[in-house]
Design a protein around this nucleic acid. Structure first.
Lengths: 213, 213
DNA sequence: GTCTATAGATTGATAGAC
DNA sequence: GTCTATCAATCTATAGAC
């Protein structure tokens, strides 16, 4: 059992508190208290609160994006090899499955995924940009491969259906964090749904929506 | 051209700035400056910043919810009268159409809709609760009528598909506010999509997803 | 009702001893 | 690298004159 360094202790506490309370509500005093380190350590190791946020994001998002990119390229390349177009279902699953499995892989991952879901609509430019900078190239790849799967759709219809799908995905990324009003039935359903089932349900849902009526 | 009262000037400025900058980032100083009134006027007319938020929300959300409730009850009652089950498409359109038409009805409505979209995942308990308190009864009605339309689905599958649909709807409520990275093609598609087309597309998308494969 | 002035609390960041 | 102490800026809310 190796001791965590100060830097890592701060990253873990910040990840947790940024996700739970939001970037602005999580003060450096609370973060360093939870981490069990001195207040001044943040600025020594990370220069600023904003740089700390960047470090929190990149630590987990860079490896995750690498996996999602490989999966998407694999779907694209296999279709080319067979001389067919990729299937929308395979494309969406290549994006969704690593995301949801990653969420369950480590305790902090759930926090980062929730934080990411909220960052898309974050009003603060610096926070939102920090996420888009890392996510946008992957979104463009998804756009490219998925449009190969659905070549018959007019571009504006295709665009909007992808936006709707991103909305559905983005929402479930935040679900574990959202505190719904008391309703035990709903809470039970959420708790009792395993990752495999959720992947199957969301993939099926967005595929139906994308391929349309 | 009647002069706006101080109260209304504050409500309009707060609605705009809460939506643009977020509740915590929109300070009372900036709000009263944009409204052209004195800083102390907020606490005189609304007691606190939090009460101001409540007033901003209720001003527009109560009338909108009344319309959505009537539309949903109408779909339910007409199905009962005919001795049939309601159609999922009609149910979702009864919810979606008033929401998106309302968004285009007045300048401030777009701000409130965006604010509402973000409030669902707001970490601050008091802000999130302010919205859920007003929206939850309507959500329960939607749940009831839509489950009549899709009685063959297992409840957990039904629940998740509705959640995915709420995610898609929630996302497009925020779209006008989200600043995507520069990509003129996407910005053009968003700008050139009229409300009628968007209603048609999102209704079709969620209906396909809900009815499933 | 509207204003000025300020209280009282909290924040991110930093200087400087060890 | 870690600590204490503190600065400078910000915020909401309020007291009290007009």
């Amino acid at each position: 059992m190796s001791e965590l360094g100060t830097k890592e202790k701060i990253l873990n506490a910040a990840e947790h508190l940024f996700a739970r309370d939001g970037f602005h509500n999580a003060s450096l005093r609370i973060i360093t208290e939870e981490a069990g380190v001195n207040l001044a350590a943040v600025n020594y190791h990370f220069n600023s609160k904003e740089s700390l946020l960047h470090a929190v994001i990149e630590r987990r998002l860079l490896p995750l994006n690498q996996i999602r990119r490989e999966r998407l390229e694999q779907v694209r390349d296999e279709a080319v090899k067979k001389g067919e177009k990729p299937r929308a279902r395979d494309v969406m699953k290549a994006f969704l499955e690593p995301t949801l499995r990653f969420r369950d892989s480590e305790p902090g991952a759930k926090d980062l995924i929730a934080l990411m879901g909220r960052a898309v609509s974050e009003p603060d430019d610096t926070i939102r940009s920090a996420f888009f900078k890392l996510v946008w190239p992957l979104f463009m790849l998804l756009y490219e491969v998925l449009s190969q799967a659905l070549p018959e759709l007019p571009e504006n219809v295709f665009f909007w259906r992808l936006i709707f799908s991103m909305g559905a995905m983005n929402f479930i990324m935040q679900i574990p964090q959202i505190k719904f009003p008391e309703n035990q039935k709903f809470i039970n359903i959420i708790d009792e749904t395993d990752t495999d089932s959720l992947i199957e349900m969301i993939t099926g849902y967005v595929t139906s929506g994308l391929e349309g009526s």
